[in-house]
Design a protein around this nucleic acid. Structure first.
Lengths: 235, 235
DNA sequence: GACGAGGTTTGATCCAGGTCAAGCCCGCTG
DNA sequence: CAGCGGGCTTGACCTGGATCAAACCTCGTC
């Protein structure tokens, strides 16, 4: 079995976990799925277009963005490996989905997928729970965008990534690769590239993080980072 | 039948629409419901507390807020008459719910309500759709908080209220009562009271709105307001 | 009808972060 | 290995909105 096919099966299995499906159903699911790659920067879903896909992210990072009429951009969500992408119930998209890095997707055609949801209540429940998580995340971010300083925003973002990526998030010395370039960080944090860059060097200067190349991040102290982020360590 | 009881029945009916219930079930629903008033400023739900209520808003405005450790506040959602309040699936609350004006609620105890959801898939679907709407609204607001100027934020907010409250939202001359005081507007828009006040007088000066007392708002031109909000009139 | 207390407006000043403009770094290609 | 382009950093300057400080307005209450 080639790599491509294995990845697809893996994504299908992951999805199937929610729905408690039989082997036969799992096979049927695998039949309708297909595997696709996107290069960094490519648009996967356009705003105001009817939704035609539902996908499981195999690898890479996807940014969900909104833009004003005059072109100012805001990232309203990030999706990483193992996250789902798509809008259920035939709604048109309210944002763009773009590959922030190279991305591999396992795609389920939307009509077949909607039928699947109708058949498996557990799957629907799973999606509901995910939506509630997304809502909580969006509201957390509203506090950040509305009330936090540039320094706190950058620290909060690093903390978010650390919790998501680092193998031992509680430990000092956690490290990971920054999945976004500076411009995307700025669009996520409601800042400019220059401010993001300055805050990163400031964090480096104060000895809270180390930066290797431009993407490698090493955290010296989780507690101090949480402190800089202006939130209790538990959040 | 007294006013109080009539309001409760009305709220129960509204809820029942989603679930396509029988009369007998509707009665049972009515039995578990009770009616309660909150004065402006009162806390209805505290952050990090287990959720103990699910309610239909009969009248008034509720603000959902988050606060930083040092007390900066951000409103992450507003609820008006006929909206639902509550968190399903036994999650603890991530924010405060406070009465922004005097509020009347029709409350369903959470355990009974969760059982009800389990029984009526339509009701669950209805809540799911509402959550998706909330998520869209939150993401719209992220664009506002991250990328819009003070003038655009205030205009956007007025536009939002106009669409929700004015009897003929498309027409010029639409008018409504501002449900929030300036401090709450500031907390919703990620600004300070002073800036909100200045932008309101600016909108008045440019002849886009008229302000009667401090709460009465009259819109002279929906199109110019949408323009000031930095968005296409359709949004 | 004087008196507070909360809410709102207005003015003067300040500063965090935006803007503009180089320069740097690094991988890619000819 | 020179030249190029995209991304990142750094510096100098500017400005929109925050901050600080009055005044003002509108009520309910004595």
């Amino acid at each position: 079995m080639d790599h491509l096919h294995r990845c697809q099966l893996c994504a299908v299995r992951k999805l199937a976990v929610c729905g408690a499906m039989s082997d036969e159903q799992l096979n049927r699911l695998n039949e309708i799925a297909h595997y696709k790659k996107y290069a960094a920067g490519q648009t996967i879903i356009s705003s105001d277009q009817p939704v035609t896909l539902f996908a499981n992210i195999v690898s890479g990072t996807i940014k969900l963005t909104k833009v004003t009429v005059d072109g100012r951009e805001q990232i309203v969500g990030l999706l990483f490996a193992s996250d789902f992408l798509g809008r259920t119930f035939g709604r048109t998209n309210r944002y763009f989905a773009m590959a922030a890095t190279d991305v591999e997707l396992c795609i389920f055609p939307s009509d077949a997928f909607e039928r699947l949801i109708a058949t498996f209540p557990d799957l629907k429940q799973c999606l509901f729970e995910r939506t509630l998580d997304d809502l909580d995340a969006a509201r957390d971010w509203m506090l950040l965008l509305g009330r936090k300083s540039a320094a706190e925003r950058v620290a909060s973002f690093l903390l978010l990534l650390a919790c998501r990526f680092a193998r031992s998030p509680q430990q000092a010395g956690a490290q990971f690769d920054m999945p976004l370039k500076r411009a995307d960080m700025a669009d996520y944090l409601g800042l400019t590239v220059e401010t993001v860059s300055r805050q990163m060097t400031r964090l480096k200067a104060t000895g809270i993080i180390e930066i290797k190349g431009t993407r490698g991040i090493k955290l010296f102290s989780m507690a101090r980072l949480a402190d800089a982020a202006g939130q209790s360590p538990g959040d």
